[in-house]
Simulated scan of single mutants.
Amino acid sequence: MLRNPLPSSGRGRAAGFTATAALLLAGCATQQPGTEFNDPYETQNRAVHETNLALDRAVFGGGKPDRKPFLPAPVAEGVANFSDNLGMPAAVLNSLLQGRPDPAVKNAARFVMNTTVGLGGLLDPATAVGLHAEDTDFGETLHVWGAPEGAFLVLPIAGPTTERDLVGKVVDFVIDPMNGAFPEPERYYVAAAKLGGKVADRQRYGDVIDDILYQSADSYAQMRLMYLQNRHYELGIEAEVFDPYEDPYGQ
């Protein structure tokens, strides 16, 4: 049985990290007038991007026409489903922090159904009955609270983000109810499953990822454009934009 999603110690840590997040965001780089993207660290970002590309080619065979799947398709689907299900409690918490009870209730129902009927989340019966995920994170929570986006960043391995979303990732890790739901060593298995979901997604959406990273004249500029447009779409800033997740074979 899962523990209390956010015990008293977790609430204290959440409050502390929320305050820290506010202080960090106060120093976010501001966009200069007349610039299309807030990317003051472009030189450093491009260097990290090139390193990430080299790692992607070495580990996943990115950009190679004869690239072979490293997981059978059903296994990749199951791993991705399991990882997504583990993220539902954090999405519920963030929806509540955003003052949005409806997505919180829907995600809670998804988690219960997929955890029970869906064999721990390996299957996704919730989607089959119309309970689609309402994904969110603490980066969106900060956006709802009025925090500025800050500068565009590229992280080693993790890839594109923004200053606001980077703070959000740190806070998400700390306040994620699943981190306190299991003792050691089970919590490490949960972390490994979440990482496995990212690996499975690289395979599932590999064709479009390769198009963006290896078929563009400037893969960095294309990646930056796609990330920011899609993120703004998720946050409701842009009403219409290409959403790579609509294509089951591309990101």
Rank of each mutant, 00 (worst) to 15 (best):
M178H: 07
P244N: 09
G250C: 08
V59M: 06
F37R: 07
G12A: 15
A192C: 00
E42D: 06
A26W: 04
V75F: 11
A221I: 09
E246I: 08
T20I: 14
R100H: 13
Q203A: 01
L123R: 15
L122M: 13
G99L: 04
M88C: 14
Q44T: 10
A128K: 15
N114I: 11
L25H: 06
M226Y: 11
D247V: 08
P89R: 12
L153K: 05
T136P: 00
P101A: 14
R187S: 08
M88W: 09
P185R: 07
A14I: 06
A54K: 07
A217H: 05
P33L: 07
D176P: 05
P160D: 05
V48A: 02
L235P: 00
S95A: 11
V199P: 02
P248G: 01
E50H: 10
P177L: 11
L228N: 09
H232L: 00
Y205L: 14
A158L: 15
L24H: 06
N81V: 06
V241M: 05
L235I: 00
R224T: 01
M113W: 14
G27P: 07
A19V: 06
E140Q: 08
N85Y: 12
R46D: 01
D137W: 08
G139W: 01
V208W: 11
L86C: 11
P160N: 07
H143P: 00
A181E: 02
E234I: 00
F173Y: 11
H132R: 12
D102Y: 09
F173Q: 03
K194Q: 09
A151L: 03
E50A: 13
L122K: 11
P125Q: 10
M113D: 10
I237Q: 00
F138H: 10
K106Y: 02
D176C: 04
L86M: 15
Y233Q: 00
T161F: 08
Q44G: 10
A181L: 03
N107H: 08
A193L: 09
A14E: 05
N114A: 08
E240I: 01
D218P: 01
I212S: 07
A191F: 01
H232Q: 10
M88G: 11
K169H: 07
G146D: 05
H49S: 04
M1D: 06
I175Y: 13
T35Q: 15
L142A: 14
